[in-house]
């Protein structure tokens, strides 16, 4: 079955300051979508609004014409690395086990099979050998892989990742993009907040380009072109190509 996530006329403001204005777009199952835009464009805000984590001034976010709230347990979220307390007393394995919580519901503890499933997810990101380490002992890329494993453990249909490629090593990057592509081929919908323009074409098939307002949304070939980019980044394209971005 094919799902459709649709964002309609979403506006968000903090203390009277408009952060997002009338953003609308729509995506189907089996897509890996990059949310792109300059610093302060409202990328993370858009993701948080989509997840219902912050109040909206107006607009709706629906999956198959039903409010997103209905699908909460089918949604996996990978936070920005800077939002996590890496000194928290928790091991890699227990972090991934948290991914099984939404399906367990209240009053149920993770059982043996939940823990085995968590290990299976750790295996997929190549982090089994680190299962008993405290999460702060890992490198940035390894930490990101562990949180991706946690998202996998949720058996979700919709994935939301906030800046997963920031400050990570090449091999972790390969592992993560491999898994995201696999999720895409399984018919999931994956949203990724991203700000590095250099690898956009390698990573994504679809893009949402924003700078407070929606600049454009759709296939990479259509969205990722100089006129759009100039509008989004409010500076000449030549400077963008100076930064090593191929258009």
């Amino acid at each position: 079955m094919s799902d459709i996530i649709s964002v309609k006329d979403v506006s968000v403001s903090y203390f009277g300051k408009q952060v997002l204005e009338d953003v609308s777009f729509e995506f189907k199952s089996g897509n890996l979508i990059g949310i792109l835009g300059p610093n302060g464009a409202g990328k993370s805000t858009l993701m948080k609004a989509m997840l219902g984590l912050i109040p909206k001034d107006k607009g709706t976010i629906e999956i198959n014409s039903k409010p997103l709230k209905v699908f909460r347990k089918k949604i996996a979220y990978v936070p920005q690395r800077s939002n996590i307390d890496w000194n928290f007393p928790i091991t890699v394995k227990d972090t991934v086990v948290i991914g099984t919580y939404p399906l367990l519901g209240l009053f149920h503890r993770p059982r043996k099979e939940d823990k085995e499933w968590a290990m299976c997810c750790l295996e997929q990101v190549g982090m089994v050998d680190f299962a008993d380490r405290q999460i702060g002992e890992l490198s940035g890329g390894q930490q990101q892989r562990v949180f991706l494993a946690r998202a996998l453990a949720q058996k979700a249909d919709y994935f939301f990742l906030d800046e997963p490629f920031v400050g990570i090593d090449v091999s972790s990057e390969d592992v993560i993009i491999g898994i995201l592509k696999k999720l895409q081929s399984e018919g999931k919908i994956v949203f990724v907040v991203h700000h590095d323009l250099t690898k956009v074409k390698n990573y994504f098939d679809e893009l949402v380009l924003i700078n407070k307002q929606l600049i454009d949304a759709g296939p990479v070939q259509k969205v990722f072109q100089s006129e759009n980019m100039t509008r989004a980044y409010e500076r000449p394209v030549s400077m963008l190509s100076d930064l090593g971005v191929e258009m």
């Binding site: 948080k48 997840l51 936070p79 928790i90």
Partner: peptide
């Protein structure tokens, strides 16, 4: 509520995202 206390203390955003 150990499970809920753990996840909300560790990653409040994820906890809120799953309801």
């Amino acid at each position: 509520f150990y499970k809920e206390l753990l996840v909300s203390s560790f990653d409040e955003t994820m906890a809120a995202a799953y309801g």
